[in-house]
């Protein structure tokens, strides 16, 4: 299991994100815009998909199922984003799902033709959850552009499974499903690359992380929350309120709370 969100009540969250899944594995699908994420989604789920909106947002949400090795997987298509730093509603939705929806595995689809830009998102997702599988899509297009990616080396660098795919032609998707299952069953050797920040950032983290850790009591990765607060991102505080301190229970208590806006 991921090291984040360990003890939040999953049942409530699943209801919030419209998941009804019993014993199924929940897989999140993240990626930059225009990387063929929806192709991967369609190829994996076929026509078994539902679309709707994210709770309380006008952002579209697609959800589909697939079976592999006699196990059911629910695939959530997250909005295409360049980062998870919550500068737009889409980014916030994607971040909140990975953080609070606790998917068993998060697939990050990246564009083989511009790996560097896409790795930015991969590294950010890996800060949030360790259960990541990277899907390097459009490798045929990359090769046509003269770009060759050493998948094995990338896997070693990132410390999570990496699969090369040509989603339009279905190439590599079997392998992708296999690695996703492995991660879900916890039998992959994960050693995710950690971003080491420059000294001033690390010092700032050290300054507030212990206190945050005391408050959150392991409910979330405190280093990551500290980074977001240093980043001046207030939306995370709202999200924590929304997802961990469930609003309804508080109202029953008759407490009025002013959420930091």
């Amino acid at each position: 299991m991921g090291l984040t969100c360990e003890s939040c009540s999953r049942g409530v969250l699943k209801k919030k994100f419209n998941l009804r899944c019993g014993e199924k594995f929940v897989i999140a699908l993240a990626g930059n815009p225009n990387v063929g994420k929806s192709t991967v989604f369609n190829e994996l789920t076929g026509l078994k998909q539902h679309t709707g909106n994210w709770p309380g947002k006008t952002v579209v949400n697609a959800r589909g199922n697939y079976r592999y090795e006699d196990m059911e997987f629910v695939l959530m298509d997250l909005p295409g984003t360049y980062s998870l730093l919550a500068s737009s509603v889409e980014e916030q939705v994607a971040r909140d799902f990975i953080c609070f929806g606790q998917p068993d595995v998060t697939i990050v689809v990246v564009d083989g033709t511009c790996l560097e830009r896409n790795l930015n998102l991969v590294l950010q997702v890996m800060e949030l959850t360790h259960n990541v599988v990277v899907c390097v899509n459009l490798i045929d297009e990359a090769e046509r552009k003269g770009i060759f990616i050493d998948i094995k080396a990338l896997e070693e660098e990132l410390g999570v499974p990496v699969v090369g795919t040509i989603a339009r032609e279905g190439v590599g998707l079997e392998e992708l499903k296999r690695r996703v299952l492995n991660v879900a069953l916890n039998i992959e050797n994960l050693n995710p690359k950690k971003i080491s920040y420059s000294k001033p950032v690390e010092d700032a983290i050290k300054g507030i992380e212990p206190e945050i850790d005391r408050i959150l009591k392991g409910k979330l990765n405190s280093r990551w929350v500290a980074l977001r607060l240093i980043d001046g991102d207030n939306t995370i505080v709202n999200s924590i309120y929304e997802h961990i301190y469930d609003k309804k229970t508080l109202e029953i208590e008759g407490e009025e709370v002013l959420v930091n806006a």
Binding site: S83, L85, S87, S88, N120
Partner: peptide, 11 residues
């Protein structure tokens, strides 16, 4: 602010 962040996200 936000615009700066968006620009940086683009690389």
């Amino acid at each position: 602010g936000l615009l700066r962040r968006r620009m940086m996200d683009l690389g």
